[in-house]
């Protein structure tokens, strides 16, 4: 196997390992649209990063953190808020996407490969990128391990958790920030357009085979890694774009898990 394929596999697995359990929460808490909003907002982050001359990944991280803070702190005015979360997300998703496209136009003479950001660039991962990905992955995994139990409690029933003394708003905010971090990490692997799929599809595939929350988180991580491997194999064999091939592989796993359920 070529070196760049091994690096791609390692990079993809770093992201898939944390995206799996984090994605399980996205599924349980019905936050798919929040994930999509982060992915739309990422384009603005890339453009800002390039305009300011910093790493686009940092730009994405910054914009995603702002989106997470806006949504996470929304509960403070919930009594007087008249617009639903769904509407707010829609405004943020498309507002930031439009701002991103406008900002890209300002870049004018800056030369960059937009496609690499939209669809991922996993085959071009360098050893330096790998260190960054694993460092980010370890940070995300550590935070998730710390908030797992209270977050699960709040996911089952938020008010019950509050009465039992869990500061649910803080945990939700931390979770949203971690999610923002994973979106920034996953951009390299599948691109901003397909980031949400890496969170949701492996977790959904894992559901059929799980009886505990932890099992589902672990299986989602495994399904994610299998998708990375399958997608990279397909990409190398049929010369298809790597990011979309990874998502197609996860889709195959998901459909297989549905068929498995039928047959049990």
């Amino acid at each position: 196997m070529d070196d760049f394929l091994i690096r791609a596999l390692l990079a993809g697995c770093a992201v898939a390992l944390v995206a799996g359990p984090l994605g399980a929460f996205v599924v349980w808490r019905r936050m798919a649209y929040f994930g999509a909003t982060l992915s739309h907002a990422s384009l603005l982050g890339i453009a800002l990063g390039l305009l300011l001359g910093i790493k686009p990944t940092l730009g994405v991280l910054a914009v995603c953190i702002v989106v997470a803070l806006l949504m996470g702190l929304r509960h403070r005015s919930i009594k007087t808020e008249m617009l639903s979360e769904d509407t707010m997300l829609g405004i943020l998703a498309h507002g930031t996407l439009a701002l991103g496209l406008v900002a890209v136009a300002f870049l004018g003479d800056v030369r960059f490969d937009l496609n690499a950001y939209l669809f991922g660039d996993i085959l071009a991962v360098t050893t330096g990128d790998l260190y960054g990905l694993y460092l980010g992955g370890v940070v995300v995994a550590t935070i998730l391990a710390f908030i797992w139990r209270p977050l699960l409690s709040a996911t089952v029933d938020e008010e019950l958790a509050i009465v039992e003394g869990i500061p649910v708003h803080i945990h939700r905010l931390v979770y949203m920030l971690v999610l923002a971090g994973v979106v920034a990490l996953a951009m390299k692997v599948v691109g901003i357009l397909l980031v949400t799929s890496l969170l949701i599809i492996p977790a959904a595939a894992a559901r059929q085979l799980s009886t505990t929350p932890e099992q589902m988180g672990a299986l989602a991580a495994l399904c994610g890694c299998l998708s990375i491997a399958g997608g990279l194999w397909g990409s190398a064999t049929y010369d298809t774009p790597s990011g979309p091939s990874i998502v197609v592989a996860s889709l195959v796993l998901f459909v297989a898990s549905r068929l498995f359920r039928r047959s049990v």
Partner: peptide, 18 residues
């Protein structure tokens, strides 16, 4: 309770969260 069907959790585990 409004637990999403996607969350695999037994009664015993539900209790342990408290």
């Amino acid at each position: 309770l409004n637990i999403d069907p996607a969350l695999p959790i037994s009664v015993k585990r539900f209790l342990s969260l408290g």
